[in-house]
Design a binder for these strands. Structure first.
Lengths: 116, 116
DNA sequence: GCCGTACTACGATGCCTATCGTACGAGTCG
DNA sequence: CGACTCGTACGATAGGCATCGTAGTACGGC
């Protein structure tokens, strides 16, 4: 009625200053989640949950996206029936300069070395 | 009798090229272990396990050091009755350039912001 | 108003792990 | 040798978590 309201439901995110390094590292220490983040970083713009083809069920996918959101790594917003995901790259760069870059680079190097 | 033998017992370490990013991140996602690594990075040279004053029992301390060693973050070697610990900084820098620097910097920033 | 799609909620399961306490092994020093 | 220190091993415990399946909710289009 009044608010910008791209959608109605919104999801709890930690504020930038509440993001904990340990939480970020824990989130990224799971292969499935690291893969999601790599894909998200590679894509420009947002991706819906179903744009990912992960070798796990949908419930599990939902779980991983929630962990990423609650740790502050990604931002999720509903757009119609789809849930769009985006890396919180700018905020993370303010909080931990160079960290995401180094992490993504490390993941890319490992992917080359292990072909995964 | 013949070998350089700084000590007798030696401990299993992953080779540099076997170190997995996920393992490193998992190791560092525990507050106690992150603390150990920060202290180790700050000290020049090696530190024995008992140089750390951690709010956990000795068994638990042993456990954390083992996780760090097995993930490839630290190198441990016996020197008499003491077990000396050192960051595998050079190898990690070869494998994941800039990663440890960014991680240590991020941890330091967080420590300032949260006084921990 | 109904249907299909996208995602969630909840419960179950099995594994991993952080922690502790106690008992033990390896070295060093007297 | 004997005592002491440093660290390990092992078992127990409690909580966390990655995974699944099924049932359900929200939204958009017809």
């Amino acid at each position: 009625m009044s608010s910008p309201a791209v959608s109605s439901r919104d999801l709890p995110h930690p504020a930038r200053d509440e993001i904990r390094l340990e939480g970020v590292l824990h989130a990224l220490s799971d292969p499935m989640r690291l893969r999601i983040v790599r894909e998200l970083a590679g894509a420009r713009g947002e991706l819906s949950c179903s744009d990912f083809e992960l070798p796990v069920t949908k419930s599990t996918t939902t779980h991983h996206f929630r962990v990423l959101r609650e740790s502050g790594v990604i931002r999720q917003v509903y757009r119609g029936t789809a849930k769009m995901n985006g890396l919180r790259r700018d905020e993370l760069d303010e909080l931990f300069p160079g960290l995401m870059g180094a992490l993504l680079d490390a993941a890319a190097r490992q992917a080359v070395r292990w072909r995964d």
